[in-house]
Write a protein that binds this DNA or RNA. Structure first.
Lengths: 281, 281
DNA sequence: GTCAATATGAAATAATAATTCCAATCTATA
DNA sequence: TATAGATTGGAATTATTATTTCATATTGAC
């Protein structure tokens, strides 16, 4: 038998799930109960847990031993540690992640760094988002005939998700891609009754800037997502959002931009539904 | 004296702070310790807590009685209850936001919901990521000649970001896009010396499944990012990651997948740099 | 400074909980 | 279906932990 003792909850969980089907009936019964009610394991006594799970206390100990612990008590530690960690405040956990990532403890640190960067970006934007601008942008996009989505390079993933979501919501949209170099022609169809979501971060992709200028000159209203008031996008936009993404290892997070983009998209969908209902009534 | 027993942590906290200055020295010492280290009170034994706080166990019991409890055990219940509640608060918050958004509580609720969904996903994956699998995936991808990136629809934004990042890191890669319907031909070039990152979530895009199968049959090793062990991708993959993304308003967050994807990419870049250095030395 | 009231320390005791052990019961295999 | 091996139930045992007790120290009022 594998003698390594799962020290943390997730490892234990994985191990349990792996062996799930080869466990004796009562042991499996406890395994299921433990994963369903981890809090009870953390706080209960062997007797009380055994009763809740419908087994004998001795079986509970056998369960612990089955997974390499020397008794119920040390198994319980894992469930308690989990609660402690979970409970430690968000910021504390972030700080810990960041510290670990910085001292460069292997590849796991890279992962932790990206998680930390994403979390930071999210809490930043959550504080910074201007409700008025947000409502303006939604109003503007909701009345557009077609929504053009414009972004290259690093911002392109966001644009493609917006396009996907708009499609799902049955909102006419056009992702301005550069595959065949026909962007200028595509843009030429846009009218002031349409609208644009443009996304670009420093260093601003020249193509995005040019196309945004072009489309702005045709009188199409623009909602921009960018990273500072000096951004060339800001001057063309009716409404613009400043999103500060934390970076790690040279790559910036996209999580805040994604959250904002999704919120915009879904809110536009809702606003349209409401408007449609009202017209009918 | 007030004989009502504080049943919840906040009441207890307030009561302690009120009486702080009229407490005997050692009792006050415990009071301070308890408010500073609530987790220790929740999980420790009377003896261990007393030792940490620098008092006798009996004093700890007197402290409990001072505040109307009949002993240490019932005092401890309050600290345990607090952990239980705190622990569930994240999911509850998300549920509350969902409800609020549904009853039409403005667009800000939608935004908050997406931020919460992203945060939840991040903290989930941060806990769940298996270090061993992560290292295996990096090793596998680092030695590939070309990395093929395969994802459609909802997962496509992640794929495009991976491709962008790989390009920046000067790692040869091929995003399998469906623009001209030449995917099969593109895949045919892949050899066992290459590797694949495939991403798909339920409902799995049939094209992704088919292409993954095809490329797996050619002996190309596959790293999959998907959402459960039942995923059809899992069976083709050498290594696979389970990523549970929270959803909001029908759209799932991508933040956890993004963080994982970025971490993989950058880690592969680092591993290659290290390998290159070693060869030269 | 003395005395009573209060607070504290340390060990003894009581209570509770974990673990072990053994008999009984299943399960798979020949 | 007989039998070895694994699994389970339940009581006995052991360990741990909370609580009580009592001697000692400290504090504050007179």
């Amino acid at each position: 038998m594998d003698e390594r003792v799962p020290r943390d909850f997730e490892t234990l969980r994985t191990t349990i799930l792996e062996r799930r089907h080869s466990l004796p009936k009562r042991i499996a019964q406890i395994a299921a109960y433990a994963l369903d009610n981890p809090d009870d394991i953390a706080f209960g006594t062997a007797a009380s847990i055994a009763a809740s799970a419908g087994v004998q206390p001795s079986t509970l100990i056998r369960f612990a031993q089955q997974f390499g612990f020397d008794g119920f008590t040390s198994l319980q530690q894992v469930f308690r540690e989990r609660l402690r960690e979970r409970n430690s405040s968000y910021d504390e956990r972030l700080a810990a992640l960041r510290a670990k990532a910085e001292e460069g403890a292997g590849h796991r640190a890279i992962f932790d760094g990206f998680v930390a960067a994403a979390s930071t970006s999210l809490s930043d934007i959550s504080r910074a988002l201007n409700d008025t601008h947000f409502e303006e942008a939604i109003a503007l996009l909701a009345k557009a005939e077609t929504i053009y989505v414009l972004a290259k390079r690093r911002s392109y993933p966001v644009a493609s998700y917006i396009a996907y979501a708009l499609g799902k919501l049955k909102i006419r949209n056009q992702l301005v891609e550069s595959a065949a170099g026909l962007n200028a022609e595509m843009i030429a169809f846009a009218t002031p009754r349409d609208a644009v979501i443009a996304i670009s971060f420093s260093p601003y992709a020249p193509a995005t800037i040019d196309e945004t200028r072009l489309i702005a000159e045709q009188g199409v209203p623009i909602v921009a997502i960018t990273d500072s008031s000096f951004s060339p996008l800001a001057q063309f936009a009716k409404v613009w959002f400043e999103v500060a993404e934390a970076d790690f290892g040279g790559f910036r997070s996209l999580s805040a931009t994604m959250a904002l983009a999704m919120a915009l998209t879904v809110a536009v969908g809702e606003k349209r539904r409401d408007a449609g209902r009202k017209r009918k009534a």
